[in-house]
Amino acid sequence: MNTPHVVVVMGVAGTGKTTIGPLLAARYGVPYAEGDDFHPPANIAKMSAGTPLTDDDRWPWLDAIGDWAHGRAGLGGVVSCSALKRSYRDRLRAAAPGVVFVHLTGDRALIEDRMSHRQGHFMPTALLDSQFATLQPLERDEAGVAVDVAGSPEEIGERAAAALDALSEPTP
């Protein structure tokens, strides 16, 4: 990326947003914000209990992430946020025009396996089905890239950075 963008690392739970986000932030020399930290305690409690969030639960969370992204406009930053629906991404773009999305994608079995091995996270694997049911992949008119999560974090980070860099290159 030639100019400082705010990058939203998105995808269903377990794709590695919290792992890949800091790798991208370090590569570009910008701050990283963990999207889960923007959730109110009630959302964390709901997800911990295995209850999917509603849109009404998500709006204040998305607004808080959008406020952070807006504050980083022109400076750059990376934030993780599931951003599963187009309407969620539209809300983030309304708060911070120019955000770019990195959609971490992958095989459901791989993602579930990774989720089952992580320690200390509130999101149970039982919610993975609801995440996939809610997911609306990036559309052609949305600034962003899709990156497969197969491989090591370093390999995924390199693919994501290469895809972001390609977005910034002028077309001949």
Rank of each mutant, 00 (worst) to 15 (best):
M10C: 12
D148F: 12
A49L: 01
G16W: 04
V9D: 00
S80Q: 11
S168E: 14
V7C: 04
T51R: 13
K46Q: 09
R108E: 13
W61Q: 01
D56Y: 03
N2R: 15
N2K: 13
G66R: 05
T19H: 03
A161Y: 11
S130T: 11
T54G: 06
E112A: 15
A83E: 00
F132T: 06
E139T: 13
S87L: 11
G157H: 05
D141K: 05
A25D: 13
P41I: 11
K85G: 02
G106L: 07
D56I: 10
V30L: 12
A49D: 02
P22Q: 11
V102G: 01
A69H: 04
Y28I: 15
K17A: 04
M115C: 08
R140N: 09
I65N: 02
V12Q: 02
A26P: 09
P60K: 01
V78T: 09
P41R: 06
H39L: 10
S87Q: 13
E169R: 15
G29V: 14
S152L: 14
K17H: 09
G77W: 03
V100W: 03
D63Y: 04
P60Y: 07
P170H: 12
A161Q: 11
D37T: 15
V30N: 08
A95Y: 02
W59H: 09
P41W: 07
N2M: 14
A109H: 14
I156L: 09
